[in-house]
């Protein structure tokens, strides 16, 4: 039994890692806490949902569409909205993204309705059993994709020029500018990537659970906790934070009760903020540097 719970936790954790990595990246590089992250993820869910429902396209094939559409969306938002006020006090940006969240959630409620939706291809519900542990194929696939994408993200940041420019910007904006990096562009690309990853995770979410515009806040919260647990902007941190959150949530739901799930997640976050705001793996604590 405990094994099954752990496996469920790890599978869930893979998803959390993916939703957290984009959030953490944006926060680490641009110092923006994007409260609309969950709402953006849900846009991805709806893309998958409508393509599956109306065009009968396999949900896994919709993933690149979701990624690209939300990449463009994120790029435009950062370039023409956030960059305009990015040097303002930090919590102004927090409110700005909250405004975006309210707008997007209400937009989805108005046009897609507040009903719970889910994507159920014929292979939904099929599963494999290993040593008494039941693993649904879809969850396994979702987990694998989350891990692969997170790993690619890490590779991208380490090895490519753009990735290096992003990391340089996150370490020291002014120094990066002096080497000829355009922060306007880097910020936009970073936010675009964050949104694209959110969209991707939203698409995958639609395969594993029912969703409605109202769960946006819960998703943002989890992304936030993953970022806090792992340390800002760190891919391997998000990886670790995601798995940890997934396991803690599943285990505590089982032993303490499903209804305390959010309270535990929040409690964990507040505790972490107080004890080690730089995350488990450690990283510069932004609030000390710029506020």
């Amino acid at each position: 039994m405990i094994l099954q719970i752990l496996v469920n936790g790890i599978l869930l954790g893979g998803f959390y890692a993916l939703i957290g990595v984009g959030f953490s990246l944006v926060w680490g590089v641009t110092n923006i806490i994007n409260l609309a992250h969950g709402a953006i993820a849900l846009l991805g869910s709806y893309i998958t949902y409508y393509m599956f429902q109306n065009l009968h396209i396999d949900p896994f094939i919709t993933l690149p569409v979701s990624f690209i559409v939300l990449y463009i969306f994120g790029y435009l938002v950062q370039r023409y909205l956030m960059n305009m006020v990015v040097k303002a006090q930090i919590f102004m940006l927090l409110i700005l993204t909250f405004g975006m969240e309210i707008f997007l959630v209400n937009f989805m409620t108005t046009f897609f309705s507040a009903d719970f939706r889910s994507v159920t291809p014929d292979y939904a519900g099929k599963s494999i059993e290993i040593a008494g542990v039941v693993v649904p194929y879809i969850r396994l696939a979702v987990f694998a994709i989350c891990m692969i994408v997170t790993a690619i993200m890490g590779f991208f940041l380490e090895k490519t020029w753009t990735g290096k420019a992003i990391r340089a910007t996150s370490l020291d904006l002014e120094a990066a500018m002096m080497t000829g990096i355009s922060p306007r562009k880097i910020y936009s690309i970073t936010f675009a990537l964050g949104s694209a990853l959110a969209g991707l995770s939203g698409s995958l979410l639609s395969l594993t659970q029912a969703f409605s515009p109202n769960i946006a806040g819960g998703l943002t919260l989890r992304a936030f906790i993953v970022a806090i647990l792992g340390g800002l902007g760190r891919v391997e941190g998000a990886f670790l934070g995601g798995l940890l959150l997934g396991v803690i949530e599943t285990v505590s739901s089982f032993y303490i009760g499903e209804s305390y799930k959010n309270a535990i997640a929040f409690g964990l976050m507040v505790f972490m903020l107080i004890v080690k705001p730089s995350g488990l793996l450690g990283r510069k604590y932004y609030a000390e540097v710029k506020h």
Partner: peptide
């Protein structure tokens, strides 16, 4: 002791935790 948005988010955490407690 937290500053800036760390504090902001921690207060949201407090709010949500109290909400869950009341709910339960």
């Amino acid at each position: 002791r937290l500053k800036g948005h760390y504090f902001a988010i921690a207060t949201v955490g407090v709010m949500e935790t109290i909400k869950e407690l009341v709910d339960n």
